[in-house]
């Protein structure tokens, strides 16, 4: 091959149909997720609208009464909401302190070796299917609660057991997000505290923890969102049948539990039972969407703070 030869070439743009087609296909794949969200909102909204357009259903009944039995004309959403809130509250009561403490230990105290043993345990907890947690709640935690409190004081299906186990389920989420937040706190901040003669506990609780507060906030919000949307634990252990009560020792069905039970039965399209499920699902979707958005926003802001 001679390098001296002059070989003419053309630098004009060439159209490569293959490239264009592939790029279009990839674009479609990227946009599909938007289509999913739109379809989700459309389908949930359409059926939920059918529910609310039913002449029998009024917002006054929906928010103003406390019995939920759409099949027989009772449209008060409160029993489902209260039980959802109670189980989620109990779950967070367990998950938040334990998750924070676990994260503090892992990020501030544990040696790499101890960490490499303890951390996978949390990861295993995070990977256990929720139906298995349901089994655990109903057949392990509930009997223990009953033997502590007496069978007369706590029913076989109760919100306490479901909430406690849900707390264990959410613990790894809180702990790993908080740990991320702690490790984002710059090292010099800790050194500053130690150089003032602070102990490890004083540094952890009074410097690292406050500095990571927004990251922890994001974890809490996401944890609440997870608790509200969790289905199988409450479907198995919290009881079936809406029950307007604030007593965690009683059985009460959550929003998700209601969807699972009613949709698992015989359901005819377009019936009030059918559309009512979409009304609940839409509420679930909107609440968790808002919570997730806030959480994401907070995490992002938190990252920027230390970058």
């Amino acid at each position: 091959m001679s390098t001296k030869n002059f070989r003419p070439f053309n630098l004009k743009k060439t159209i490569r149909p293959g490239e264009t087609i592939i790029q279009s296909l990839l674009f479609v794949a990227g946009v599909l997720s938007i289509m999913i969200t739109i379809t989700l909102v459309y389908e949930l909204g359409k059926e939920a609208l059918l529910f609310f357009n039913n002449p029998d259903v009024t917002l006054a009944k929906f928010f103003g009464t406390t019995e939920w039995q759409p099949g027989i004309g009772k449209y008060g959403i409160w029993p489902l909401v209260t039980s959802t809130l109670i189980t989620s509250f109990i779950a967070m009561l367990i998950a938040l302190p334990l998750g924070l403490a676990a994260a503090l230990y892992l990020s501030e105290y544990a040696s790499p070796k101890v960490r490499s043993i303890l951390k996978p345990i949390l990861e295993i907890l995070a990977g256990i299917p929720t139906v298995v947690y349901g089994f655990f709640a109903l057949l392990f935690v509930t009997p223990i609660l009953q033997s502590i409190m007496g069978k007369d004081n706590i029913s076989v299906y109760n919100m306490l057991s479901a909430g406690l186990v849900m707390g264990i389920m959410i613990l790894p989420l809180i702990s790993s997000m908080s740990e991320d937040a702690f490790s984002a706190v710059p090292r010099p901040l800790r050194e500053g505290a130690y150089a003032m003669g602070a102990t490890k506990l004083e540094t952890s609780l009074q410097v690292v923890l406050p500095a990571a507060l927004s990251g922890i906030g994001a974890a809490v919000i996401l944890g609440i969102s997870r608790a509200i949307g969790e289905t199988m634990i409450v479907a198995v252990a919290a009881g079936s049948g809406p029950n307007f009560t604030l007593n965690p020792f009683e059985a009460a069905e959550t929003m998700t539990g209601n969807i699972a039970r009613i949709s698992g039965g015989d359901l005819s399209y377009g019936s009030i039972d059918y559309t009512s499920l979409f009304a609940i699902a839409l509420m679930l979707f909107l609440v968790t969407l808002v919570l997730n958005l806030i959480s994401q926003y907070v995490v992002q802001r938190f990252r920027e703070q230390y970058e």
Binding site: P186, P188, L189, E191, G192, A193, V207, P210, A211
Partner: peptide, 8 residues
């Protein structure tokens, strides 16, 4: 320290 590290 080298970089100012006030507490938040």
């Amino acid at each position: 320290f080298q970089k100012p590290n006030p507490f938040p």
